[in-house]
Design a protein around this nucleic acid. Sequence first.
DNA 1: TAATATATTTAGATTAATCTATATGGTGCT
DNA 2: AGCACCATATAGATTAATCTAAATATATTA
Lengths: 218, 218
Amino acid sequence: MISETVENYLKALFTLADEEGKVSVSELSQCLEVSKPSANSMAKTLHQEGFLIYKKYKPLVLTKYGRKAAALVIRRHRLTEMFLVEKMGFAWDEVHDVAEQIEHVQSPMFFERMDELMDFPKFDPHGSPIPDRDGNIVEADWVPLSACAEGDSVSFVGLAQSSKSLLQLLDGHKIALNQIFEVTTIEPFDQSIVINRDGFPALTLSRQVCNEMLVRVK
Amino acid sequence: MISETVENYLKALFTLADEEGKVSVSELSQCLEVSKPSANSMAKTLHQEGFLIYKKYKPLVLTKYGRKAAALVIRRHRLTEMFLVEKMGFAWDEVHDVAEQIEHVQSPMFFERMDELMDFPKFDPHGSPIPDRDGNIVEADWVPLSACAEGDSVSFVGLAQSSKSLLQLLDGHKIALNQIFEVTTIEPFDQSIVINRDGFPALTLSRQVCNEMLVRVK
DNA sequence: TAATATATTTAGATTAATCTATATGGTGCT
DNA sequence: AGCACCATATAGATTAATCTAAATATATTA
């Protein structure tokens, strides 16, 4: 059984990886707030278990097996964050520390139930994609609108999950598929987004709405 | 911060305590499936931390402080069990192992939210009382009907939580406060209970209903 | 290319929780 | 009272995860 500590190292390695999948021991130790010798020694252990490739003085690289294990921890983390916000009334910025603990619960059923109850969300409350049951992370050309930066020009290409009430809301604002708009402002207070479209007045969309709207950044 | 291991020892000590609060090292070691020296050595640690009274060759007794800490772990365990059943569609006999893990989550808010969402239940899905926020365990002369044994003769004295739909259901069956009845059968399959009352035909009540009905055993 | 700075590794110690094997205290029986 | 038995305690080792201090490798830069 994978210990919580190992799961945390895997998660860190996954998120720190650069384009080639490389992570330095220093980065790793900093990210986890442990000493460099600790990170180094754990790297050797993870190598022995087949989670990563360790060669003296070389950057660390997760194996396929390691990446899958890591993605599954991240899946549990993000599902939990989403559940805390959607079903338990937490604010999106209060969930991290709790999710950090719950992600280690050993019970596939527990996370499957969360997933079901939320109707299989594709993104967490911060707009990060939730890996699927097999650890595949949806590599798509779209992101939730909530993940965009001020000034981005985007086209609206779909919804993360479609509910009647959301469709009605979008309809009411005359927002349609393939429409093009610009992210004018992101409110620091509540992360609501102001968009601008040709031929329409400026429009403010709540964080919840932006989480569900998938856009392609130009 | 109290480690998970310590929390598990406290929980075991609390539940194993006899009328005088005494627990032997052997019982403790058996309950937690550790060796006797392990239990002994942890007993010394818990003594140092003020959780229990340890005297060589004498039975272990939790201090007031220890009992409170233990009750709070049990509170989290039972709240979690209830939440899994009520809000996440688990069966009442599937929840123990998961709750065993979640009870250690460090986040008062998380458990407060559970409590609120369930409308402050007084008993867990197995009919055991849920200690309050201060670690007080309701010592009452009534128990949920679901905690009764076949053959018990009881009087109906109240509800654990009253919802309109439950009241309507009871009304429909002409069940009223202070009525006296006998627990005739407990179905092994779904823990539904058949009761018998003077002047009424036999009646089957579901586990959910029995959980909410508080009775005094004669 | 040599000197220096930075990153990485090794050595050795620490802590919490556990174990096995052994020793000792307390209780009950003859 | 003495002996045997069971519960309890001690000694000493082990494991995972961590640390500090010191040594060594790689990279940078004069």
